[in-house]
């Protein structure tokens, strides 16, 4: 393992104490257990999710606990989304597990053209929740690593959430299912087992509200999902090495964007880096920069900056993968450039 990759895992080593017992994927499992227990309208639909418990075990034991409500689907992502839409119109609250976010491209038409347009066209909302196991992990390669949030956020009628913490993974899934509109729930695979918490906390935030994860005063990093943790690591390093106090804003929901929190942070710091793991062309970070430039140009002391993955497919080999996505090292470089303007 080279230096870059080793440092990538370092942050998570801090979280391996015995008391830290709830993982991010446990939280997703527990949320689904709660939802099935408390809401008879909820059912789960996806590939290998029934007795097998899902490719990532996010539905482990639920088929036995809730007979007939955790259903294996054929390998038919279009039909999975279509079935969920029909069931939701008929009063249910389906949760669909796409085995990997990447495969939701097959369901794209149903999600953006059927679910996304339905309320505007007919006045009838479509309360589906689509779970997308997203983002890169070492060795997963081009088709098991993608971050799809920007694609879905582009289309009207969909809510897109990207929980970055164990507690958010739990509460935002509960909130997604309670919400009347389609929610694309992007859960990060890298966080599944590395990210742990002693308990699930509720800080009262709802869908659509961002969080100041780390307060600061010299610059703002606006980010989401697994990159929140990389941003915090970079911020800690900049503080330790140079005394910079960096504020990290976790968007939590990328559609819609909580611009109040973003602009308030930029107002405090005067500097913005929009950080994301997704491909660099367009997307969430471009949206953040465009909006801050448009709505808060007067707040900026430096040109707003962006940092994303490289503009290639996500590579297979861990050496390449670790250099494809932003890392604390590349975030620090981008921040030093921003701070020196």
């Amino acid at each position: 393992m080279d230096g870059g990759l080793a440092s990538l895992f370092e942050a998570f080593d801090l979280n391996t104490a015995q008391s830290m017992s709830i993982t991010y994927v446990d939280a997703i499992l527990q949320a689904q257990e709660t939802l099935l227990r408390e809401d008879p309208r909820v059912f789960l639909y996806g590939q290998d999710i029934s007795r097998f418990g899902g490719a990532f075990k996010a539905t482990k034991g639920l088929a036995e606990a809730f007979p007939g409500r955790v259903l294996d689907s054929p390998i038919s992502e279009d039909a999975m989304a279509g079935v969920a839409i029909g069931a939701a119109i008929e009063g249910m609250r389906p949760i669909v597990e796409m085995q990997f976010a990447d495969f939701s491209s097959i369901a794209f038409n149903q999600l953006v053209n059927h679910a996304g347009t339905h309320f505007y066209r007919t006045g009838v909302p479509v309360p589906i929740t689509i779970r997308l196991p997203s983002g890169g992990t070492p060795g997963s390669g081009p088709f098991h690593s993608q971050s799809m949030e920007a694609i879905y956020a582009h289309y009207p009628g969909l809510v897109v959430v990207t929980p970055a913490t164990v507690s958010d993974a739990y509460h935002m899934l509960i909130q997604a299912v309670a919400h009347d509109d389609p929610v694309i729930y992007c859960e990060h695979k890298f966080l599944y087992r590395w990210l742990k918490s002693p308990s699930i906390q509720d800080d009262g935030l709802s869908l659509g509200q961002a969080r100041i994860t780390r307060p600061g005063k010299h610059a703002t990093i606006v980010t989401y999902s697994a990159m929140v943790h990389e941003a915090v690591r970079a911020a800690d390093r900049l503080q330790a090495e140079s005394g910079w106090e960096i504020e990290v804003v976790d968007l939590r929901t990328v559609k819609p964007i909580d611009m109040d929190t973003v602009l308030a942070s930029v107002a405090r710091t005067g500097r913005l880096l929009a950080l994301g793991e997704a491909f660099p062309w367009g997307g969430v970070t471009a949206e953040i920069v465009a909006r801050v430039a448009g709505e808060g140009f007067h707040l900026l002391d430096a040109p707003p900056a962006r940092l994303n993955s490289r503009d290639t497919p996500v590579p297979y080999h861990p050496n390449l993968w670790a250099a494809h996505r932003p890392t604390p090292e590349t975030i620090c470089l981008a921040m030093r450039e921003l701070l020196s303007f």
Binding site: S76, A79, M80, A81, V83, G86, A87, I89, E90
Partner: peptide
């Protein structure tokens, strides 16, 4: 699949 989903519901 949408009609199938309504029937499944």
């Amino acid at each position: 699949p949408v009609v199938a989903g309504a029937l499944l519901a």
